[in-house]
């Protein structure tokens, strides 16, 4: 229920931040309207960093505590991170074409290391599909998640360490936090978008974590839990005989809920 409120708040915040970025602030004097893409582009990139940082920390949590809930956080955050990385790259391309004159430059360090970041975490998600054993999968994923996280600071500082096409950060660099290289309304639009995206990220992470837990529970059921539950149900004959839908009154009726019922009497007469 609280998650639902968070979801609504995130939706409203993202809409408000987008409207502010599009209409509430003036466009950059030199770049014009194209510069407005900076707000969702930068916010997406920051949340990609956060996602993969969380994946790495959750991986450490799994390695130390051997609790699969850490692994559920890790996979949830990695998948969301892949989404935000892809969105950051897309936004960057849409900003680059009108301003730089090109969508993409492979040789730019920021662009190349970001593409590598996307590839690493797509690989992370694919790797997870290779194993059916939850513990082995979690350990492999934790190690890969930790190694891949090395690329996060490389992406961020690439624009400072190496000579490239991409411009340095507007204010997330040590000397600029108090002196951002943009006027206050631009900074507000960026911080607003970042806050809104962070709300949305939190909601997505909670829901994706719930999905990961549900998947783990189903795997567990297939693996032997089903046997346990079946024998428990057999001990209580009334439960086993009841239709599945009736046993779960809390769930809404499924799509096919209406069709099987008329059939049931016909089948019974045969």
């Amino acid at each position: 229920m609280k998650t639902r409120i968070l979801g609504v708040a995130a939706l409203l915040a993202v809409i408000a931040a987008a409207l502010f970025g599009l209409y509430g602030v003036p466009a950059d004097l030199n770049q014009g309207d194209a510069q407005r893409i900076m707000y969702p582009h930068v916010a997406s990139a920051w949340l990609a960093y956060l996602s993969f940082g969380v994946t790495a920390l959750a991986g450490i949590g799994w390695l130390i505590r051997r609790d699969l809930r850490f692994d559920a956080v890790a996979v949830a955050s990695a998948e969301i991170g892949v989404l935000f990385t892809a969105l950051a790259i897309w936004g960057g391309m849409m900003w680059a074409r009108p301003v730089w004159g090109v969508f993409w430059q492979w040789e730019d360090p920021r662009l190349t290391t970001t593409a590598l970041l996307l590839a690493l975490y797509v690989g992370y998600l694919l790797l997870r599909r290779l194993s059916d054993d939850p513990a082995r999968r979690a350990t492999r994923a934790a190690v890969v998640g930790l190694v891949a996280a090395v690329d996060i600071p490389i992406v961020h500082f690439s624009v400072i360490w190496w000579r490239g096409l991409h411009q340095p950060p507007t204010f997330l660099s040590p000397d600029k936090i108090l002196h951002p290289s943009a006027p206050l309304p631009f900074v507000l639009a960026l911080v607003g978008m970042l806050g809104a995206f962070t709300l949305a990220w939190t909601w997505l992470l909670i829901r994706r974590y719930q999905l990961a837990r549900a998947e783990l529970a189903r795997e567990d059921a297939v693996r032997g839990g089903l046997v346990r539950r079946a024998s428990a149900a057999a001990a209580r004959p009334g439960v086993a005989a009841r239709p599945a839908a009736a046993a779960r009154p809390g769930l809404p009726a499924s799509d096919d809920g209406g069709t099987p019922q008329p059939k049931a009497p016909a089948e019974a007469t045969q």
Binding site: V14, L22, R36, S44, W90, A214, A221, R229
Partner: peptide, 29 residues
């Protein structure tokens, strides 16, 4: 830029709710 980023977030969120609902339907009796 805005359309794909915001639309992508919305599409992922909708798909996530769908996956969650499906996964919960698979829950064993």
């Amino acid at each position: 830029g805005y359309g794909v980023i915001l639309g992508g977030l919305a599409a992922y969120a909708a798909l996530l709710l769908l996956r969650l609902a499906r996964e919960r339907q698979h829950r064993p009796p």
